[in-house]
Design a protein around this nucleic acid. Sequence first.
DNA 1: GCCCAGGTGGGTA
DNA 2: TACCCACATGGG
Length: 222
Amino acid sequence: MNQTPVALPSVFRQLRDHFGAQQWWPAESPYEVVTGAILTQNTAWTNVEKAIVNLKAAGALVPATMRDLSLAELEQLIRPAGFFRQKAARLHHVTTVLVDDYGGRVERLCAGPLDAARVRLLALPGVGPETADSILLYAGHRPSFVVDAYTRRIFSRLGLLDGTERYEAIRARFMSELPHEAPLFNEYHALVVTLAKSHCRKLRPECPACPLFADCRFAGQG
DNA sequence: GCCCAGGTGGGTA
DNA sequence: TACCCACATGGG
């Protein structure tokens, strides 16, 4: 085999050495992570922040309070995050299950064998693989690697993916080449996002992703 | 004005 | 399996 099994750990070390510890997820509670994970679906984080501010101001970033909100009220609060009708229904349903079946405790929602917990989350409408893994990792502190559009883009650019792999295949690849440690998976995904946001969106061939390519001329040009 | 963003689910061939 | 589309706001 001509594979390079050190590639993924090596990329992590380079990113960590360049950007430092990321200390993710930017949230004050596990439930805020759950909320943010749903609101950020195909949406810029700056828009999610506006919705989070609204929810906090309304005192609604608490499961029991959120569940008792009407859909119409919730829709108005999260409107800046886009797709607000869909997301209000999804967030409200997840919250209802959380409160009714898990006592409002996110750690209970994420408890038990990892695969089983993941299947439970994926069964919730509006919770796909990235949202499920984000909740498991960042709210539940479980070692479930998060794959997102940035991961696909950057690792394709690095030649470590061909870009056509399915979500589960990419996740399995990272989890087969890295130790199953939540703090490592946490930092790795956070660093991928930090790298992506520090570069032009397309990561074009003429715009290599430094610090992995030392002479990138386009760093920081958004 | 146009393009895009830390996805998901439903439909069609 | 492999596309296509709807879903919506706000920043560059």
